[in-house]
Simulated assay, not measured.
Amino acid sequence: MNSFRLLAAVCLTTTLFNVCYAEDSRHVSLTGQSNFRDVGGYKTKDGRKVKRGHVFRSGELPRLTDEDVAQLEQLGIKTVVNFLTVVETESRGKDRLPQNVREVSLPIETEDGLAAAIEEARRTADFSSMPPSINLEIHRLLVDNAREQYAALLKEIAQSKEPLVFHCSHGVHRTGTATAILLWSLGVPWETVREDYLLSNKYREAEVKKRLAQLRVLLAKKQNIRPDEVDMTNIEAFYIQKGEYIDATRDEIIKQHGSIEGYINQGLGLSAKEFNSLKEKLLQ
């Protein structure tokens, strides 16, 4: 079984097992998914802390090894919330999970078909219609287009009695936005929320380098030019995240609702009772 990455280890007790983490990392080392992390451990503005071992964020899970699946079982995960569309799942495959894990499908697709366009760009390496600014637009659109899914996720977290993980394809845009909304609503400072978002660059670095190299070669063949002549601006902007991308989520929420509390109540439709249940579940 793969081991957790350990430096100065800190241990916690889940409902089933003792699990150790690195003091400076919430990352869970899996062979088949590089961006699997605990969202807990962050301090809030009022001095409390988000509990560890309750909620995890990730990219897709079809390529997990047997050892990876055993780690999910060791973490005690009993619910997986999946933001992928039917088309994405058909092309990428179903998640590999421990037995008796409940799967909740909350597919997120923008009204203008942006998710489908992005999937096509990934397949063909043609990002000509995906300028760097599209990344900010994705996060702005998710504030509205994914309200139903994000509301359902927060309710799942509040009601879940055992650990839960939510994911999209890479654990970046849809999952990153969901995580930002969750942490910000719990009182985690935005600077910390932003840093958590950018950690995807760290954990996906090897994967991204490999994918960028593949896309460069593919595009060079299509354009009949040398690989070093390929303009990678749009592609790199999509695969390498910047803080301004998630800042667009914050700015859109403030523009529409005035505050994260307003968004939780008016945008997502959570009652004060439901939101208090979420905070009671995750804050210590």
Rank of each mutant, 00 (worst) to 15 (best):
Y239V: 08
F127Y: 07
L183M: 07
E207C: 05
T31N: 08
F127Q: 00
F127H: 01
V101L: 03
L16R: 14
R140T: 05
L268Y: 02
Q149C: 06
P107Y: 05
N265W: 00
A116Y: 03
P227W: 03
V193P: 08
R123A: 11
Q71M: 14
L72G: 07
N276T: 12
N135C: 14
L278K: 02
R226P: 09
T79C: 04
I260T: 10
M1P: 04
E137F: 13
S185D: 00
D68W: 00
T249A: 13
N234D: 09
Y263H: 09
E195N: 10
K45Q: 10
A272H: 13
I253A: 07
D144E: 08
R96T: 01
N82M: 05
T177S: 03
K94C: 06
T249E: 13
L270I: 05
L75D: 04
T110N: 02
H257T: 06
G176L: 02
G53R: 07
I246F: 07
K210M: 13
L106H: 07
R26I: 11
Q214G: 11
R204N: 03
D38K: 09
R122A: 10
V39W: 05
F275L: 05
V55H: 00
G40S: 03
E280R: 12
N265I: 00
N145P: 02
L219A: 15
A151F: 00
E137T: 15
L199R: 02
D95S: 10
H167M: 01
A178E: 02
L215A: 15
L141P: 01
D247M: 11
G93R: 06
R37C: 03
E120T: 11
R57T: 06
D144Q: 08
N265E: 15
R147L: 01
A151L: 03
L278Y: 01
A9P: 12
V172Y: 00
I77L: 07
